[in-house]
């Protein structure tokens, strides 16, 4: 497996300047407030996952960083620069994958990359392009209109990575990819970080954020509600557990396990539980019972958010 070697230039004092610094960022579209005062700091050379349900403001925040849209208020600095005044410099040192990727359908992937590379004054090395295309299993000579959604996404990833930027801003990078390719992309991101690149990526897939991110920012309704370690997100996250017993048991015995809420236990031979945090307590209780089968189900991100931030909702 090849790795992304070398890296773009580093800042004079890389650890002092945050890769991305956002204070009180606001943006409205008419009556819709997309961002309601986002505060966020992404350190140099980390993988930062930006997690939020659909419509939370992830894409809007990302597009402000590249001066594609203009915020109504707040402060924003990318690699120590103002994206509005120094948009070309910011983009020079950044690789970006849009959430809704569109490419010219009549060009081949190679033609599209050639065009985009010419906008970067041919900074990308052809060998790097070939190497990444091989890793991503992308045929560069197929017209884009004939590529599947997953292959278009690979072309999008390739254009973001090909010039070895200092900062990668990726909006849902694994969208449309099969599980094996998702793993490969996450590996590429790890290698990029190892080579000195800061990776900022948005996702609504909690597993991939947990797998690769150093820190996670959670955005909800246009505000960053929390920045935390991925592990602590899991500690607080929810699982739905269905347990079937060989004979009827008292559901309350199971419900007394730590972090467990009984959702359904009417017939005694099966229970549906909601478990918050670690599963150890529940497993210890279940070990004393005649368990026939156990299924765990990860709730959707929306469900987790609803449980974690219910109080915000009520406020």
């Amino acid at each position: 497996m090849r790795s992304i070697e070398g890296n773009a230039k580093t800042l004079d004092d890389p650890m002092q300047i945050p890769a991305i610094e956002i204070k009180g960022l606001t943006k409205s579209y008419g009556r819709v407030q997309a961002l309601r005062g986002v505060d966020l700091e992404v350190r140099q050379v980390e993988i930062f996952g930006f997690l939020g349900p659909n419509g939370a403001g992830k894409t809007t925040a990302i597009r402000c960083m590249l001066d594609l849209i203009r915020p109504d208020g707040g402060e924003l600095r990318v690699l120590g620069m103002d994206p509005r005044r120094q948009s070309v410099e910011v983009r020079e040192r950044t690789g970006y994958l849009p959430g809704e990727l569109s490419l010219y359908p009549n060009l081949t992937a190679r033609g599209m990359l050639r065009l985009l590379n010419s906008l970067r004054r041919h900074r990308a090395d052809p060998a790097t392009i070939e190497s990444l295309a091989e890793r991503l299993a992308l045929d560069l000579d197929t017209p884009i209109k004939n590529l599947s959604k997953g292959n278009k996404q690979k072309a999008g990833l390739l254009q973001a990575l090909m010039h070895r930027p200092e900062l990668l801003i990726l909006d849902e990078p694994t969208l449309g990819l099969d599980p094996l390719m998702q793993k490969e992309v996450l590996q590429i991101l790890r290698e990029a970080r190892a080579a000195g690149t800061t990776v900022f990526f948005s996702s609504h897939n909690i597993s991939e954020v947990e797998e690769v991110a150093d820190r996670v920012g959670i955005i909800r309704k246009g505000r960053v509600v929390e920045v935390l370690e991925p592990e602590s997100l899991w500690d607080r996250s929810l699982r739905r557990v269905r347990v079937r017993f060989r004979k009827a048991v008292d559901p309350q015995r199971v419900a007394e396990a730590p972090g467990v809420t009984l959702l359904d236990g009417s017939d005694g031979t099966s229970v549906v539980l909601q478990v918050t945090g670690e599963m150890g307590g529940l497993i210890r209780v279940l070990a004393q019972l005649p368990v026939r089968d156990l299924e765990t189900e990860r709730p959707t991100l929306e469900e987790i958010f609803l449980a974690l931030y219910r109080n915000d909702e009520e406020d």
Binding site: R63, L66, D67, L68, S87, V88, E89, R91, E92, T94, Y96, P98, E100, L101, S102, L103, Y104, L116, L119, R120, R121, G156, Q159
Partner: peptide, 14 residues
């Protein structure tokens, strides 16, 4: 309207 401008303007051109 076809969504390509978002990608083009993320490159170093003003």
């Amino acid at each position: 309207e076809e969504g390509v401008l978002d990608l083009l303007l993320a490159h170093p051109i003003d």
